[in-house]
Amino acid sequence: MAINTKSSIGRKVLMSLSALFLLFFLFQHFLINVTSVFSPDLFNELSHFMGTNPLVQFALQPVLIFGVVFHFVMGFVLEIQNKKARGVNYASYNGGANASWASRNMLISGAVILAFLGLHFYDFWIPEIAHKYIHFAPEDPNRYFGELQHKFTDIIRVVLYSLSFVLLALHLNHGFQSAFQSVGFNDKKYTPALKKIGKWYSILIPLGFVFIAIFHYINQL
């Protein structure tokens, strides 16, 4: 027997599994990007590996794209269902009295992250796919650092990136521990520690990405 993916619990389990996968992806993305701060060569080497390894390109990349699309589509579907479940709205609803802004507005933070992903794909992913699979340009293993730096010469882009990461931090702040709760992990002994890890993750990873963007901008002034 399989999990009923049409049931409310089945869907939230799928949401959390895709979220856990994206949390892992974000962490490894950060680890690679942060190397650009102290070693352009290492950044080039890692980016070249990720950009040319067949397992990454043809197995993990499609899984990642599916994970991102699924997480967003299911998030919107569930939000619509949840709005319908209320029926008539309250005239007075003090949501802040018992739940954080981040937990009540995952759709807003998610929509900002979606818009950011559009910009991010425009900046990096689409040129990368065009470079490799449309123009069949010869591979230069040292091109990645320059391409990264070039994007952060524009202050508007740096500001947009930074603002998006504030919303990402809020999204992760609720999403990290929520993903574990949804798959049934809530334990008196371990959950407080997990919540602390989630808080630090949600602050440090987005802050790290902002730091990388500002670092490259300042370095090119």
Binding site: Q81, A85, N98
Partner: peptide, 21 residues
């Protein structure tokens, strides 16, 4: 759970408001 879904209740997003109230 099947009956809960049939009744038209919404999905849990772990805000924790229920526990507090």
């Amino acid at each position: 759970v099947k009956q809960m879904d049939l009744e038209g209740f919404g999905n849990c997003t772990n805000t924790g408001a229920c526990e507090i109230e």
